[in-house]
Design a binder for these strands. Structure first.
Lengths: 364, 364
DNA sequence: TAGCAATTGTCTCACGTTGTCATAAGCGGA
DNA sequence: TCCGCTTATGACAACGTGAGACAATTGCTA
């Protein structure tokens, strides 16, 4: 901590010197009672037996209402919580579900994967243990060890973008989130990228746009292929051929820092005879880039040319001017679905594809 | 005695044979061995005692090298991990540090708070249990209960922006992260907002800018006050009076969806006799807004007028065109510092202020 | 008075691990 | 042969919880 500057006035040196002495009065917390450690202690205070306390905690009906109330009062007063460690020992069930977030937590929208999973875990009385890892590094091994040490009952493995992964099966069932295993060894929850693109394209044609250009993600991206298909199919369903209207607008390989090729593509398509009436971007960040590049060309999104996208990335999509109309990826529901599969069990290789939602703003 | 009978005599071969027969259909996973459950089981396979296995696992030197190798081989082969639950029971130490992220995880940069804390936890052999909560809701109570059930040794409470909070003391020590308690009941780790603004302003004047305008955050924001002071002080240190150059550019109260008042302020200051040569924004998102509004006024940031900001928000700061020069908030180091305090203990009311770093791009 | 239900308590065990203490084997010296 | 010592290993208890078996007590009814 080289950058730290410390506060605390003149007492600093003294306090450090007296560290041990100062520790003693820490327990003097006036607002809340001291947390008691055991049921035995509760029983002692309630002047009853250990077994009766156990009965109350485990909702055994064979307890007198008055006794139950007395014990519950003491439990509430002392803030006692049964020891998870002891419960895990006794019951031989950990109730722990691991969540390995592979780089996930560095983007805002995929936080919703975590939130969805955690909400379900709470609803179902499970403990979710979350680890931010990077695949192939020490962090992944450490997370695995810790989950093994806690005897996790299932593990959710979440990827940062929709991709294929190779996760070796172990003793505990895995659920792949935002990724899948080609061999079908694990259950998976992924966004329905085909549907996302089909639905957005349907809306685009329905609103009268006829010359959309799709600036798609890199060809090594799973979503890219699926969305391209959805785009073309929806156009055909509307009676138009759009297969020539797709461009690859991400130059960097998957996982590397993003390099967009939007500038050159925009120059080309905007210079053509038949000018596009809409730019469909593979992701909101690309759309932001396109906003700037259109601005430099003197074009205002939403007025001179429409823009649409995928992600609904908070807070960018809402803060762009005009607000970006975009297909929201169903991350929260995906998180919920993955945790549900993890708890209830899934058929081997079962894959859930979740639909997205169109978020309307003013760029379309 | 039951161990002795299992180990000895003619039953041995049979037991092993049966063992293989039984194990085979259970663990039909070809890639990795079956995870065994207990040290007793390891001992049985190694034909040794429970205690000797325990010694090997706990690096007790009083074990014959040959015996150690034999046991370690079996442990490696089976992928055995000691049960945390049992260890917690036996040692009466949980090694668990709670991390309550109050809305934190919904912004990218503050993920670094989590990363920093988790890295230190790993380095120190602690288990960090992370909960995304919202203060005052059920989620906060549930997280508290779970941490109590796991007998967490300390709790880190992280806020989404630098603010004062009121956390009642409980039995376990708290470390406040990105927030503080006015009464000084808890240790705290916060960004040194005064330094951030002072340093950025110093650089601004050093580069020859003389008419900066500071579009500060809302007046109810702690950082706002501190940065305003740093701004004015640094200007004075450079020989200029800047107290009249500050505006409040966030109209919404803290925590509510952001409403910027930048448009009106820009119109005013750009219409004045003495036009500003630099717009200093309170946060990168505001800077993004300012980019758009300057664009609509026909001004290009970095060319016609400089822009600087606070946050280094990924990926916005790098993707704006031109890239945004901004003061990075030291979230990763703050997370590390908070976990260090949580593990090693902190003086009551101790406050750590961490300095930020200037990230140079092309808007300045 | 016996019989019964409701309530509470006693006692025991098991979960997996590890600290304490005890035991066993080997070996040199008296 | 015995003692003292080292090295290696094993037996046992206890952490907090929850469950079963069963006894004890009270109050009520047949």
């Amino acid at each position: 901590m080289p950058q730290a500057s410390e506060e605390g006035g003149a007492a600093k040196g003294v306090a450090v010197a007296l560290g041990l002495v100062i520790v003693a009065p820490i327990g003097n917390c006036p607002t809340k009672a001291i947390a008691l450690s055991t049921q035995r202690e509760i029983a002692r205070r309630a002047k009853t037996s250990l077994k009766t306390v156990s009965r109350v905690i485990n909702r055994d009906p064979l307890v007198n209402a008055e006794t139950r109330a007395r014990i519950e009062a003491i439990i509430a007063e002392t803030g006692y919580e049964p020891s998870q460690a002891a419960r895990m020992m006794r019951s031989q069930r950990s109730n722990v579900i691991g969540f390995l977030a592979d780089g996930v937590a560095t983007t805002t929208s995929s936080i919703d994967l975590v939130r969805g999973a955690q909400d379900v875990a709470w609803e179902r009385g499970k403990q979710m243990m979350l680890f931010n890892i990077e695949r192939g590094t020490q962090s992944a091994d450490m997370a695995d060890s810790q989950l093994a040490a806690f005897r996790a009952e299932a593990i959710i493995y979440a990827a940062i973008f929709h991709q294929e992964v190779d996760i070796a099966p172990t003793g505990v069932p895995h659920v792949l989130l935002n990724c899948f295993d080609k061999s079908g060894r694990h259950a998976a929850v992924v966004p329905d990228d085909y549907q996302l693109a089909f639905e957005l394209t349907r809306i685009i044609y329905e609103r009268g746009y006829r010359r959309p250009v799709f600036l798609n993600l890199g060809t090594d991206i799973v979503a890219s292929h699926l969305r391209g298909k959805g785009f073309v199919d929806a156009a055909r369903a509307a009676g138009y051929e759009a297969s020539g209207r797709m461009h690859t607008a991400v130059l960097s390989p998957a996982g590397a820092p993003t390099k967009f090729g939007t500038r050159a593509i925009l120059a080309e398509v905007l210079g053509a005879d038949e000018k596009p009436d809409l730019i469909l971007c593979g992701q909101d960040i690309m759309a932001m880039n396109v906003y700037f590049e259109l601005g430099e060309l003197g074009l205002k999104p939403g007025r001179d040319i429409a823009v649409a996208s995928f992600d609904n990335l908070d807070p960018i999509a809402g803060l762009l001017q005009p607000g970006l109309s975009t297909m929201e990826l169903p991350y929260y529901d995906m998180g919920r679905a993955a945790m549900t599969l993890a708890i209830d069990g899934a058929k081997e290789g079962q894959t859930l594809r979740l639909k997205g939602k169109f978020i309307e703003r003013h760029s379309l």
